[in-house]
Design a protein around this nucleic acid. Structure first.
Lengths: 212, 212
DNA sequence: CACTGTGAACCCGTTCACAGCA
DNA sequence: TGCTGTGAACGGGTTCACAGTG
């Protein structure tokens, strides 16, 4: 019976941070790093760094810290960054087309292979490396290898329909920019990026502060 | 001595959700709602809904639930949405210019009043309702009322400099799209949106699942 | 009687502190 | 000696359960 220690979701997100810093430091020629120092770079405590890494294995050397190149490779493997991840994007409006042109993804191994939109005027346009297709043909993605990650950047009133379709054609993870709570089967992961919510956190804090 | 119960940051984010749903339901003509029902719409438990709202006051009626119009107004006021919030954006690249054209902000009371970029080619261009200015003139924003919220959408290597400058000219809240940990004085709030980190959560889950 | 508001119990992520190893 | 790895303590956010109210 395999040990089943639970890994906090937030620990996985912090792994991304560690990977980012360690990658940067490796380019700078640094060879080793302690949990304290890595914590300084990421604004976390040394204990948090060690605990997080310990969820995934033992990467350090007592008394010496972590070897940067091998820590980097270890985290890359854990996060699945030793592979290329094809992505489908739905909605080629403002945000969607910015994402299509955004070079940051490809550098990171995430490649938008297909883009769909319902708007006739957008269908057929080249954007970044792909041509926007009609959303009716979305089941095409079944042919294109096995895309399991999707980005939804459509208006809120069609987001749930799009999500349903995506799940039907095999998508397992959805990054959702539409301001709605998507209902999906368990087994499908949804992350929401809601710009208004982020800004509302700010306006809440600022409002509270000015009325002391 | 005023009561100082601590409000979880996450409760504020959920307030945004409640506001969104309640606004939508009001448009649909619905008059009252129970915590259970509001929880269904937001994928939360009824207890969570009631506890969250209780941090901010008493909005319901025993046995009857919450009156939608007045709950909406109450949350709007709490989140500071009874005001217009001017915003400055720095970095008019892919993502920055998409945000400038994004109509969702204005509807929500967040108005990008100024945009800056370091790139000569972008300075002077109209984008959305504003003209992109040279970042050297950033202290102009002091003249323009009192902007306290900023969005950073510049490359990672200049993000910290930009943040320093923004804080110096009075910014108190920063929404950061650059993949770096920004160092700011306490008193300044930073929220990060890191698309690669989001996608890495997905690739982690998908990788783990396929090797069972 | 239905549903809110809330203290208390619970759970889980973070922090602590130290044993153990290079 | 310096730093990792980790069980145990801690703390705070969530859930429970019920008293109280219209």
């Amino acid at each position: 019976m395999p040990e089943k220690k639970k890994i906090p979701k937030s620990a996985v997100s912090r792994l991304s941070l560690y990977l980012r810093e360690v990658t940067r430091l490796e380019k700078g020629g640094k060879g080793k790093i302690s949990s304290t120092e890595l914590g300084d770079y990421t604004d976390l405590t040394d204990a948090q760094v060690r605990k997080d890494l310990s969820y995934f294995g033992q990467f350090g050397t007592s008394g010496a810290g972590y070897d940067i190149p091998s820590l980097k490779e270890a985290i890359r493997k854990i996060l699945g960054k030793d592979k290329i991840w094809p992505i489908v994007l739905v909605g080629a409006g403002n945000i969607g087309s910015a994402l299509l042109r955004y070079p940051g993804f490809k550098n990171q191994g995430f490649v938008i292979k297909e883009a769909f939109d319902a708007d006739r005027k957008k269908v057929g346009k080249r954007c970044g490396d792909v041509v926007v297709k009609d959303i009716k043909n979305i089941s095409d993605i079944k042919k294109n290898g096995s895309i399991r990650i999707a980005i939804i950047a459509v208006p809120e009133n069609s987001a749930q329909d799009v999500a349903n379709t995506l799940v039907k054609v095999g998508i397992r993870s959805i990054l959702n920019f539409a301001p709605v709570v998507l209902r999906v089967n368990s087994g499908v992961t949804v992350s929401n990026i809601d710009l208004s919510t982020e800004l509302e956190n700010f306006s809440f804090i600022l409002s509270s502060q000015e009325a002391p």
